[in-house]
Measured scan of single mutants.
Amino acid sequence: TEDEKKIQELLKRANGDVSKAEKLAQSQGNEELARRLREYANK
């Protein structure tokens, strides 16, 4: 999905570090994506 692409892109930029990727999403003002990242990471 589009969200998964965004999540994978963020994870790439954060070198696979979920908490960093989450902070990136939040810094972009994207709380929804940050929440999805957390769920994605907890799979």
Rank of each mutant, 00 (worst) to 15 (best):
K5Y: 12
E32I: 05
K43T: 11
T1W: 14
A41L: 13
E2W: 15
R35D: 09
T1Y: 14
Y40M: 12
S27H: 09
D17E: 03
Y40F: 07
A34D: 01
E9Y: 05
L33H: 01
D3N: 08
E4G: 07
D3A: 10
R36T: 06
R35E: 11
K12D: 11
E22C: 13
Q28E: 15
L33A: 04
I7K: 01
L37T: 01
A25N: 00
G29D: 04
R35P: 01
E39S: 04
A14T: 14
L10Y: 12
A25G: 01
L33K: 00
E2R: 08
K12W: 10
D17G: 01
Q28S: 09
Y40E: 03
K5W: 14
S27M: 14
L24F: 07
G29K: 03
K23F: 10
K6R: 11
S27Q: 15
L37P: 00
K12S: 08
K12H: 10
E32C: 07
K5V: 11
Y40I: 09
D17R: 02
R38C: 08
E22V: 15
L33M: 06
S27C: 07
R13S: 09
K5N: 09
S27L: 15
L24E: 08
L37A: 01
R13A: 15
L24P: 00
G29Y: 09
A14L: 05
E39A: 07
G16W: 15
N15K: 08
E31Y: 15
L10Q: 02
K20L: 15
N42Y: 10
D3K: 05
E32W: 07
E9A: 09
G16F: 09
A41C: 11
K12F: 10
S27W: 08
R13I: 14
K43V: 09
E2D: 13
K23W: 12
E4P: 04
N42D: 10
L10C: 07
V18E: 02
L11V: 04
K43W: 09
D17P: 00
Q26N: 07
Q8E: 11
L10H: 02
E22T: 07
S27G: 08
E32R: 06
I7Y: 05
A14V: 10
D3T: 13
K20E: 10
Q28H: 07
Q28L: 14
Q26A: 11
E4F: 14
S27P: 01
E31M: 12
G16Y: 14
R35Y: 06
E31D: 13
D17T: 02
Q26I: 15
A21D: 00
G29A: 04
K43H: 11
R13E: 14
D17F: 02
Y40K: 03
E31F: 15
K23S: 08
L11M: 06
Q8C: 15
R13N: 09
E2K: 07
K23Q: 13
S19D: 13
R36S: 07
E22F: 11
R13D: 08
E39H: 04
Y40T: 03
Q26M: 15
V18G: 02
E9P: 00
A34E: 03
S19L: 13
E39W: 05
E9Q: 08
N42K: 13
Q26S: 07
N42E: 12
E22N: 03
L37I: 15
I7S: 02
Q28G: 07
R38Q: 06
E2S: 11
D3F: 15
A14I: 02
D3E: 14
E39N: 05
E9K: 05
L24A: 05
E22I: 15
K12A: 13
G29T: 02
L10W: 08
R36G: 04
G16H: 05
K43E: 09
Q8L: 15
Q28V: 08
L33V: 04
V18Q: 03
Q8I: 14
T1Q: 11
E4N: 10
D17Y: 02
A34Y: 04
N30Q: 10
A34K: 04
I7Q: 01
E9N: 06
E31V: 09
K6N: 10
E31W: 15
L33R: 00
D17Q: 03
K5A: 13
A25K: 01
D3Q: 09
E4T: 09
N42I: 11
L33S: 01
A21P: 00
L24W: 14
G16N: 07
R13M: 15
E9H: 06
A21Q: 01
D17K: 02
S19M: 11
A41S: 07
E31G: 06
S19Q: 12
E32N: 06
N15F: 07
E9S: 05
R36C: 10
K6W: 14
E2L: 12
L33W: 05
R38W: 06
G16E: 02
K43A: 11
Y40Q: 05
A34I: 08
Q8D: 06
A14P: 01
N30C: 09
Q8H: 10
I7A: 04
E4S: 08
K6H: 10
L37V: 09
Q28M: 15
A14F: 15
N42C: 08
N30F: 13
A21F: 01
A41Y: 14
N42P: 05
L37F: 04
G16Q: 04
R13C: 14
K6M: 15
L11C: 12
K6C: 13
Q26V: 12
E32D: 11
K20H: 07
K6G: 07
N30A: 07
N15H: 11
N42S: 12
R38F: 03
N15M: 06
N30E: 13
N30L: 15
T1H: 12
E4I: 14
Q8R: 14
Q8M: 13
K5E: 12
A34C: 05
S27K: 09
K5G: 09
R38T: 03
A41K: 08
K23P: 01
R36M: 15
R36F: 08
L37Y: 01
A14W: 05
L11H: 00
K20Q: 10
R36D: 05
L11K: 01
K23V: 08
N15A: 07
T1K: 11
E2H: 09
Q28T: 10
T1F: 13
N30H: 08
Q8N: 08
L33Q: 02
E31T: 10
R35N: 10
S27A: 14
